[in-house]
Simulated scan of single mutants.
Amino acid sequence: MPDTETGSAAGEPDYDCLLRSNLARVFNERDAATRAAALADLFVDDPVMFEPTGIVRGRAAISAVAGGLLEQFGPDFRFVPEGDALGHHGLGTLHWRAGPEGGPVAVTGIDAAEIVDGRIARLWVLLDPPHP
């Protein structure tokens, strides 16, 4: 008979809170110092973010990417969670949309995160293909 492990929600991180906090406190935060403090709370010491166009290493580099997106797309640009995050055994996902607040959706996607000791260790940003 194969060995199996029985798991429960006990000891699992709050995936929804963690991934929503990442959107709100990191990717929607325009103040660099506040964003850096959020990264220290939410991410491990040496996180890695995988984007479609490259790999970003470290909290400072992730902060620079988030700040650059907000600067590039203007003062009303926001990331908004869609539904609740799902997760178990250290992997969480959250669907999101982004665009000008109250305006048309510019992009949608999914964040997939490896969670270690309650913080994000690796984050994959998966973008949905553009709609015609």
Results as ranks from 00 to 15, higher is better:
126 L>D: 04
87 G>M: 01
11 G>S: 06
118 G>N: 01
55 I>C: 06
127 L>W: 07
65 V>C: 05
101 E>M: 14
129 P>V: 03
33 A>T: 12
60 A>D: 14
16 D>T: 10
51 E>V: 14
14 D>Q: 13
92 G>T: 02
116 V>D: 10
28 N>K: 01
74 G>M: 13
36 A>G: 14
96 W>N: 01
67 G>C: 14
80 V>R: 09
10 A>M: 10
80 V>E: 15
9 A>R: 13
54 G>P: 02
132 P>S: 13
80 V>H: 06
10 A>T: 15
41 D>L: 02
94 L>E: 02
102 G>Q: 07
132 P>W: 04
57 R>T: 03
38 A>K: 10
122 R>S: 04
85 A>F: 01
40 A>K: 13
131 H>D: 14
57 R>Y: 03
36 A>W: 08
3 D>K: 13
16 D>G: 10
29 E>W: 07
117 D>N: 05
11 G>A: 11
55 I>H: 02
130 P>D: 12
130 P>L: 01
71 E>G: 08
97 R>G: 01
83 G>C: 08
40 A>L: 00
12 E>V: 04
96 W>M: 11
3 D>V: 13
92 G>W: 00
42 L>W: 06
114 E>P: 00
50 F>L: 15
20 R>G: 06
28 N>H: 13
34 T>P: 02
45 D>Y: 09
22 N>K: 13
42 L>Q: 00
86 L>S: 08
51 E>A: 15
116 V>S: 02
67 G>D: 08
119 R>L: 03
52 P>C: 09
124 W>V: 06
19 L>F: 01
119 R>V: 08
37 A>H: 12
76 D>H: 13
77 F>Y: 15
131 H>I: 10
113 A>K: 01
5 E>D: 11
107 V>C: 02
56 V>F: 04
4 T>W: 07
34 T>V: 12
119 R>Q: 04
38 A>G: 11
21 S>Q: 04
37 A>L: 05
103 G>Y: 04
103 G>N: 11
130 P>Y: 06
93 T>K: 12
68 G>K: 09
96 W>H: 04
87 G>C: 06
45 D>T: 15
92 G>Q: 01
126 L>Y: 03
33 A>V: 14
47 P>H: 03
122 R>W: 05
127 L>C: 08
68 G>I: 08
87 G>D: 03
128 D>H: 14
125 V>R: 01
2 P>G: 07
41 D>M: 05
129 P>G: 00
41 D>R: 10
101 E>N: 07
34 T>L: 09
113 A>W: 00
54 G>K: 00
93 T>S: 14
6 T>C: 01
112 A>H: 01
1 M>N: 13
29 E>R: 09
57 R>D: 01
119 R>A: 11
130 P>Q: 05
125 V>N: 04
12 E>K: 10
8 S>F: 07
71 E>M: 06
110 I>Y: 06
72 Q>S: 11
87 G>W: 06
82 E>C: 13
89 H>D: 08
119 R>F: 00
35 R>V: 04
67 G>V: 13
74 G>S: 09
5 E>L: 10
16 D>S: 08
105 V>I: 15
82 E>H: 03
74 G>A: 09
127 L>K: 11
88 H>V: 13
12 E>Y: 12
91 L>P: 00
99 G>L: 12
88 H>M: 12
83 G>N: 11
44 V>P: 02
127 L>A: 12
29 E>G: 10
18 L>P: 06
123 L>Q: 00
34 T>D: 05
62 I>C: 00
102 G>W: 00
35 R>D: 07
6 T>K: 15
103 G>K: 05
